[in-house]
Amino acid sequence: MLVIVPAYNEEASLKALLRELFEIFPPERVLVVNDGSTDNTSAVARGEGANVIDLPLNMGIGVAMQTGYKFAKENGCSHAVQCDADGQHVPSNMRLLADEMSRAGSDLVIGSRFLGGGKTGFQSSYVRRRFINFFSWWINVLVGMRVYDVTSGFRLCNDKAIRLFAEEYPFDYPEPEAIILAIRAGLKVSETPTAMRERQGGVSSIGFFSGAYFVVKVSLGLLIRRLRRTN
């Protein structure tokens, strides 16, 4: 088991998250992928005793995340959880992801803030919910499967999904595209309620002006991944 925490300038929220994670996992099982941060993200993570990979350049969340999956694959990890560094996800909820994986026999489990018990937590802004809803609809149109929280960064992968993502992973807002990538590769994807908190410090990587780029890039990216032949 490996926890992958991609982090770009997250010194404000990282310490609390790592301490919460260390209550469940030994420090060497928690991999912080520092995506060329300009603040003290790396020093904070090392200070807490986490396993740290420092990328020499800022490459974006997708590349940082894939580095985690490559590491997981090289080290023969059977499972990997990805968890945002901003403290929005509750580490103890990883149990819920694992339960869903063994219940449904799925290869990739997504923690959803829009299902059942997840609804009691933070729901994000109205505009963002509309975007998420749109991508959810679009994925359903393309592959005939309804996933509600398509941008959730709280996910559990088994070895099959780890191998797929180590091989190929989308860059720039990768979460929705990773779902379609997994479905097209024949993996079983399922979703389970998890609570979400407001970010515990730092700023979101999606600003107002990049919103338009976000929508166009992801919509097209999903379509192209649907059109791509699978082997």
């Binding site: 990979i53 020499p56 350049l57 490459m59 590349v63 580095t67 490559k70 590491f71």
Partner: peptide, 14 residues
């Protein structure tokens, strides 16, 4: 190519 190199360097350094 840069992406692959950066990832390899990160994992190797670790």
């Amino acid at each position: 190519q840069t992406q692959k190199l950066v990832q390899e360097i990160g994992i190797l350094k670790n």
